[in-house]
Amino acid sequence: MSDSVLSIRNLQVSIQSRDGSMNEITRDVSLELKEHEFVSIVGPSGSGKTTLLRAASGLRPPSGGEVIFDQKPINDVPKGLAIVFQEYNKSLFPWLTIGKNVAMGAAEYSNQERAERVEKALIQVGLSGFATRYPWELSGGMQQRAALARAMVSNPRLLMMDEPFASVDALTRNHLEDVVQRLWDSSTFAALMVTHDVGEAVYLSDRVLVLSARPSTVLAEIKIDLARPRSQIETRRTGRFGELVAEVLERVEEAGRASVGIEDTIQK
């Protein structure tokens, strides 16, 4: 247990709706994330993936259960945990240059060290030379890379990502997946990613957890035994990749079918 970076134990999250009634989003989710492990959580839409991630990162208090990061229970976003959000255009501060946005992640260092770290992080994501630009001067993919640089600048032990590539086009998505893979390969952080893209989850992860519809529980855990480093073309060409995608997809479909009734009531 000592080599686990994050353990989520029987996490339960209920959100109060406008009329005052409690909505149970997450019923019972447990997971252990080991040192330098890449785990993805997939689930049908509306299964409360983002809520789960917000509770797991300390951004919102859970209604039950606990989250242990680095041996300590968390009640706030702890040091050493970085988060990349889906909407880069709402997560990067538009009034700051890219360099200053990235420097936000390294506030605790001296001026000189911060400048060096920002420089290094920008090189890692292929954005050196863009430090003085504003976010709106960059394409969507570049903005998300800047957000990644901001997350990496403090050498986190754990990187959480909430549908990090959902707001960009397919080719940019492939490219960003490889940026993340390269960062992960060349570093020691563990990663927890929430996504609805099964191919992406299989491509990047060591394990994929399938969430049920809400109130969500962990429905299945699939080990991804694909060789690393992976490549968009070679890895996706292998039969094993297809099998794993199909396997995860099957479980997600099951979860989705079970939820159709619930989904309808939520919509109304």
């Binding site: 706030d76 976003v77 040091k79 945990l81 909407e87 709402k90 997560s91 936000m104 992640g105």
Partner: peptide, 22 residues
């Protein structure tokens, strides 16, 4: 945007700093 506040909290901005910087 709630994401903006979440981001600020992720980078340790609380209280007066959160108000002034974000």
């Amino acid at each position: 945007e709630p994401t903006m506040i979440d981001t600020a909290k992720t980078y340790g901005l609380r209280g007066r700093k959160l108000f002034l910087k974000v």
